[in-house]
Amino acid sequence: MMDQVRIIEIQKSVLDNNDQEAERLRKKLKSEKTFLLNLMSSPGAGKTSCILRILEKLKEEMRIGVMEADIDSSIDAERVGRSGVEAIQLHTGGMCHLDAAMTEQGIEQLDTENLDLVILENVGNLVCPAEFDTGAAKNAMILSVPEGDDKPLKYPLMFTVADLVLINKIDCLDYFEFDIEAVKERIRRLNPSAVILEVSARTNEGFDLVADWFRENVKQWNGES
């Protein structure tokens, strides 16, 4: 008797399991006619404020739920809950991103069969959330003016996976060296199909176009067989 050693080639992505889980969740939501949007940004870019503006525009015409993911606290869910829309808080317990399994746990707490749109507010972070498919129909990200126009160069994956990019806090453009045309060009180089919209959650500027993007995408998602 002797030990036998050999090497086997695997070439398997460790993230495959998450990708499969995400695909399964996407199909389930598709069959329930629920459009899940994964919203990402760095901390303080204005995710919750933008969500509140979007809810103002859309809550009378579609059934919406919001999932707030944070490492701790429930302040975001409370803010959103005050707008009259169902909001739940997910605590990631130190995790820097949401994966498909955590998203599904949140989805189970919402009655998604009776919702047209669910907005998932991911953990504030431009790195890891871009890497993990949550099972969402579309990804959106917010870049705020004070963060600087170099962010697409520093976090290329985030801008590559985003279907919608909101440039927020444009009411502050005069106070920062932020070249909005340069930023758009940098995003287009990485992701020519991304829709880029300029907004201000403070002044409500630009949210008519954001609401149109949601209407169009929710309709497309729920209408396709």
């Binding site: 090497i7 070439q11 180089r189």
Partner: peptide, 25 residues
């Protein structure tokens, strides 16, 4: 203008395994 084709992965390329009885692989 470019599209990412690789460099995002975290992969297991291979494993070396051992079996402690007579085994010819």
């Amino acid at each position: 203008s470019a599209r990412i084709v690789s460099g995002r992965d975290f992969m297991i390329q291979s494993i070396e395994i051992r079996r402690e009885d007579g085994y010819d692989g």
